[in-house]
Design a protein around this nucleic acid. Structure first.
Lengths: 349, 349
DNA sequence: TTGAAAGCGGTACCAA
DNA sequence: TTGGTACCGCTTTCAA
């Protein structure tokens, strides 16, 4: 059976489709009695609007600005792929993505927004670094009526519509719980992060520290090391950390920028000695996990983050559905035993 | 700028839209020269077909049969929710879901298909039990031209279009790796499953056994126990398992039907003594994980399984995109530290 | 307050 | 082999 259209309702009521439309959309200039009658009949006939017809008629198109850093590519490239995937899965509407790239998280982002001040976007996705720096800009953008969605980290108090990220606090907590199970000896553990002004990084540290105290009272925590996402700096800091005994028993690297640290550990001959938990997944990491020299990596699912972020944004722009202010994804805990399920997907990114 | 339509192409070429349509779709009755000219111009103008217009005109509707068991409800209800979510996210097309329910996995399914033999479905989703029993039926359905997608388990050699499930082998492997980290003493571990004729259950056991041998040579594996998804049977078997020493040091429960086993462990006063790894997540399990009496649960993400399965099926039916024959999702490893991210979602199911 | 009709961008059919 | 046109269901405008 064919589902009923407004025409069918109009016919059975002996009225015109214009009236049906006015009733269904609560427009003005309609007799309340007619309105009620129409609504009742529509309900009765089980009327569902035809989305295809509506979007054909309205024929809206959306311009979305996407502001992500270039580095770290193994994370932000699949994030972009996820955004594109969401666009093509979204049938019926014309979405124009305008991709903007700045050097690294929290660096050059404000300037890029300043240059784009005249752009007429319907919404933007942004990976925010230091909320204190980019917050005012995002607030300004929001005030212009552009919907802002934060991805990968958050900028609260910036009037952004929503934020999508892995739950950073829980990520840190997982690292602590895994260490508590895998390190039996008393000793110290270290953490290397990107930048503590980035909310995501600060939260990971908070979760790690708090849960280490609970789950592993035998482990004490060294002061956090900030690599500022610079490979050379990360390498030197890690080398310094490992240059005098007692070595830390474990290192939690809470940014995807882990290779320089791994190199330092390797050069000191401590692979397998020091328990390592890393963040995210990229081809170079695979062999370390396969061979058991990395205990686990916390995969932040960049593809899904991008996809979810754009889905929320589009649903808001098209249907007016307000998203949850904070969507917190669960990181995947990637071990040796389940690595194969993730390793296949990461090259496509 | 407005994206070009076939009308625009027709205008610039001084031809009619009928010709454009013939060229773009490689239909017969068109001069190859005209065809080439049109394709070139379309490419040049950056033509993209308007999905909304197409689906309005074609106005197809699809009937999808959904064959899932009633038990275990904590798994199959969210699976159904995921299917429904995929339908409503799919704009533009009328999808009619016909939900069919049989008592439990592998029980009453064949009969239900037999009763529905005259149904005109475009595609079906099915949770297959024993492939030997349901396989021929699915083959018959496929031969009738109905696209069959298996969910939660698989029925190979049944000519089904695709299957979506958690990677069962890897699930077992994860359980083995977690035991290898958490059980230091030498001893025996047990596994309780549903039904080894169900491929998913057999694969979990295979992954568990194979990886236990590799990761934890100090642990030997007791013969697998099949509960056939019957709570009372599961309880009695678990009680018997725990009634004489030495107790197993760990039990891997590879079906969602874990509560009877937990009750048996509790009554023997062995909670906290015996390491437990369960499958899936439901409200009653939360307190056990929170308190550390369950080491981990392997969450099979039923909602996403349902959603993904229907998405693949619709994309095939509408756009002819052949899905991967096997989609293997990664189970989420739910520990105490990340439980909060999952516990929130499971009541909605 | 209501009715009538145009038109969004395709597809499909009939006529030329 | 090509052109012309009706129509899918909805929104919107203009007329009554």
């Amino acid at each position: 059976m064919k589902p009923p259209s407004i025409k069918d309702i109009a016919k059975t009521l002996g009225t015109s489709i214009g009236t049906i439309d006015r009733a269904l959309h609560g427009r003005s200039d309609i007799n309340p009695a007619t309105r009620a009658k129409v609504l009742k009949k529509a309900e009765e006939m089980g009327y569902r609007p035809n989305i295809a017809a509506r979007s054909l008629k309205l024929n809206r198109r959306l311009r979305i600005g996407v502001y992500f850093p270039r580095e770290i590519a193994s994370f932000f490239n699949p994030l972009r792929s996820g955004v594109r995937a969401a666009v093509s899965a979204f049938g019926g509407i014309q979405v124009e993505l305008v991709l903007r790239t700045f050097p690294r998280l929290g660096q050059g982002d404000v300037e890029l927004f300043a240059a784009d001040i005249e752009e007429k976007f319907d919404g933007i996705l942004v990976a925010p670094g230091n909320p204190d720096h980019i917050g005012p800009t995002l607030k300004e953008v929001s005030r212009r009526g552009i919907a802002v969605v934060c991805v990968a980290s958050d900028a609260p108090h910036s009037e952004r519509l929503a934020s999508i990220a892995v739950d950073a606090y829980v990520s840190g907590a997982i690292a602590a719980e895994l260490f508590s199970r895998s390190i039996q000896k008393d000793g110290r553990v270290a953490t290397i992060t990107g930048d503590l002004t980035t909310l995501d990084h600060a939260e990971k540290l908070r979760g790690f520290a708090a849960n280490l105290a609970v789950f592993a009272p035998h482990l004490s925590l060294l002061p956090a090391i900030e690599s500022h996402e610079k490979p050379n700096l990360a390498y030197r800091q890690a080398a310094a950390l490992l240059s005098h005994k007692p070595y830390p028993l474990g290192i939690y690297i809470s940014t995807a920028n882990s290779l320089p640290v791994l190199r330092a550990v390797q050069e000191k001959g401590l692979l397998g000695e020091v328990q390592l938990i890393t963040t995210d997944l990229f081809p170079e990491l695979v062999q370390f996990i396969e061979s058991g020299r990395i205990l686990a990596t916390l995969y932040q699912r960049p593809f899904r983050q991008g996809r979810t972020a754009l889905e929320l944004l589009l649903r808001y722009l098209l249907d007016g559905v307000k998203p949850e202010p904070r969507t917190r994804l669960a990181p995947h805990i990637v071990l040796r035993s389940n690595l194969s399920l993730f390793a296949a997907g990461i090259s496509e990114a």
